[in-house]
């Protein structure tokens, strides 16, 4: 099962090496790992996506928590969260088909950020499923190159009345 785990870590040199080294040494597989600053300059947020049985995920969580510079670890598996991945994708634009690609970009609320004679670079954000759906739709045109940031996430504030306007992975809202 896919788990999204986030950790607050001290913004000290070498922290990423401690985290990455621990994963390598223990043989954990991670799909993505993102580290970025937070509102507190002394603290960074690390978000990782890992797949594995519950026992493995538990170990990952505990081993992360054991690192001296890690402040807090949270597994978002059973939480209502907002997750976002940012992608830059360069799609080939066969003659006469540029307009349909632009239509696709608009449907996904993406942005065309660079246009050349035969390529178009598109920026798209959203939950992983949306990003992957867009990639699949672009394949027939030919993908020249692709870069993704990996997922960052945050739990939603619990709402007292009714469901929230967006469930992760079901709409294209930014």
């Amino acid at each position: 099962m896919k788990h999204l785990i986030s950790a607050l870590v001290e913004n000290e040199p070498g922290v990423l090496a401690h985290v990455a080294g621990m994963f390598a040494a223990r043989g954990y597989n991670i799909d993505s790992l993102v580290v970025g600053r937070t509102e507190d300059p002394a603290v960074s947020r690390l978000t990782l996506v890992a797949k594995g049985e519950d026992a493995i995920i538990q170990q990952i969580r505990k081993q992360l928590d054991k690192l001296v510079h890690v402040l807090k670890v949270r597994d978002h598996a059973d939480e209502d969260i907002v997750e976002r991945d940012l992608m830059l994708i360069s799609v080939q634009t066969p003659p006469g088909r540029r307009a349909e690609i632009v239509d696709l970009v608009e449907l996904f609320r993406g942005k065309v950020v660079d246009i050349g004679a035969r390529h178009m670079m598109i920026e798209l954000t959203g939950p992983e499923k949306k990003i992957e759906a867009f990639i699949n739709l672009c394949r027939p045109y030919g993908i020249s190159s692709l870069a993704r940031t990996g997922v960052i996430a945050m739990p939603r504030t619990p709402q007292p009345d009714g469901p929230t306007e967006e469930k992760s992975g079901t709409t294209n809202s930014d």
């Binding site: 040199p13 070498g14 090496a17 401690h18 080294g21 621990m22 040494a25 001296v68």
Partner: peptide, 16 residues
Amino acid sequence: VTGITRPVTKHNALCR
């Protein structure tokens, strides 16, 4: 040295 000893220590640090 902090790189080499990271997996064999509980913690390590380089003084800056």
